[in-house]
Computed example of a mutant assay.
Amino acid sequence: MGLQGVGSGALIAFGVVVLAVVGAAACGRVMAYIFAAPTGRRGRSLSVLKTLEKCLFAAFTFALVINYALDVRLRSRAHDCERKQSDDGKYIAELCLLRDEGHDADYVGRVYDAKDGQLLVERTFNAAETELSWLNGQVSFMRGGENYDVVRLPASWMERLLAKAP
């Protein structure tokens, strides 16, 4: 069965406790290393700081990669999609459900070029109510049109670049 019955809050709490215990043990070992001899403490301290800097950079990079991989996995499982073509026929907008957890849900909004089907823009957002609508050369994915769900077309170079990433 594994961890199916355990909530995400319990897993996070367990992770925090494990990190606290490991961190305390590591601090104890570092202090013992630094104060092992009366001479050379400055050099040992700098050595520890350089090692700590490398470890924190590696942990931060690892966390970013894992977060991005989980996001890619979630976006690849989009379902219940709705598509609408723009009034001028140049673009096709798509709104898909990613995850529904009761009151709010996570969605992905995508805009494609109608000629070749190339993905131009992809945005994820959380909303209680969505509505795919075209108005004056822009598409809105959410009722009320918040800033993060409105796409102005033609898409900027940054949005086109980000859409090419998995």
Rank of each mutant, 00 (worst) to 15 (best):
L52H: 10
V22E: 13
L52W: 08
A78R: 03
E82W: 00
E53G: 15
P38A: 02
R42E: 10
F57D: 07
G43A: 15
N67I: 07
R83K: 12
S76G: 14
A32P: 01
V65Q: 01
M31Y: 04
A25M: 08
A69R: 14
A26N: 08
A24F: 13
L56P: 03
Y68L: 14
S45K: 06
Y33R: 07
V48S: 04
A59H: 07
G43C: 00
A59I: 06
A63S: 14
C55T: 13
G43Y: 00
R83A: 04
V21H: 04
V21K: 03
G40W: 00
L56H: 12
G43V: 08
D71R: 10
Y68C: 05
F60H: 02
L46C: 03
L56V: 11
Y68T: 13
K54F: 13
S45T: 08
A25K: 04
S47P: 00
S47H: 10
L52F: 11
L56T: 09
L64S: 03
C55W: 05
H79T: 05
R29N: 10
A26R: 12
C27A: 15
L46R: 01
A58T: 06
T39M: 02
R73K: 15
I66F: 11
E53R: 08
A32Y: 05
A58W: 01
F57V: 15
T39L: 09
A58L: 12
F60D: 00
L64K: 07
V30R: 10
R77Y: 03
A37M: 04
M31H: 06
L46K: 02
A26M: 12
R41V: 02
P38C: 01
T51L: 15
I34N: 01
G43L: 09
G23L: 06
F35K: 13
L49K: 09
A37N: 05
A78P: 01
L70T: 04
A24L: 15
V48A: 12
G28S: 08
G43K: 10
R41Y: 00
H79K: 05
V21A: 14
R73M: 10
L49H: 05
G23F: 14
S76A: 11
T61H: 02
S76T: 00
K50S: 14
R75F: 12
R42G: 02
R75H: 14
A36Q: 11
L56F: 11
R29G: 12
T39S: 08
A59V: 12
K50W: 12
R44Y: 02
G28N: 06
R75E: 14
R42W: 06
V72H: 01
L74E: 06
L74G: 01
G40D: 03
A36R: 13
L74T: 05
S47Y: 05
